[in-house]
């Protein structure tokens, strides 16, 4: 890590390349996708924001513009986390609704 940081510093003389943040943000996006972030319109909004930020950040990193890249990646992670939370919420709400419907369908117990 230290070696990497040193290498980063030596390479461009600016902020280090935010590779860890990139990985964390990418993981957050994947988790949101797995939670069904594409299916819920509200979650999808934040998931799209996360993907856009991620793409921009990658381009910035290519250009060694690491500082704004790191900022974008953090925002992307926050967006992806929110997308995941919203998707989870939606799934749970659908399941709760289904459980209530099943409950309503069961014929009321006699005596």
């Amino acid at each position: 890590m230290l070696l990497f940081l040193l290498a980063g510093l030596l390479a461009c003389g600016g902020a280090p390349s935010p590779v860890d943040q990139l990985a964390a943000s990418q993981a957050a996006v994947r988790a949101a996708e797995e939670a069904g972030g594409d299916k819920d319109p509200e979650a999808l909004l934040y998931l799209k924001l996360a993907r856009e930020s991620l793409d921009k950040a990658k381009a910035l990193m290519e250009a060694k513009d690491n500082e704004p890249a790191a900022r974008l990646l953090k925002k992307a992670e926050a967006d992806a986390d929110l997308a995941r939370g919203l998707a989870r919420k939606l799934t749970a709400e659908a399941e709760a609704e289904e459980a209530k419907q099943v409950l309503a369908k069961i014929k009321p117990a006699t005596n």
Binding site: A78, G85, R88, K89, A92, A96, V102
Partner: peptide, 30 residues
Amino acid sequence: YIADRRARLAEAQAAYVAAENAKAEAEKAF
């Protein structure tokens, strides 16, 4: 920007827990 997402996430998380509770309750009643 991040603080805004965190706050919204807290709200979503609360709704998630509420839904889970409702589901558990329905299942228990079932």
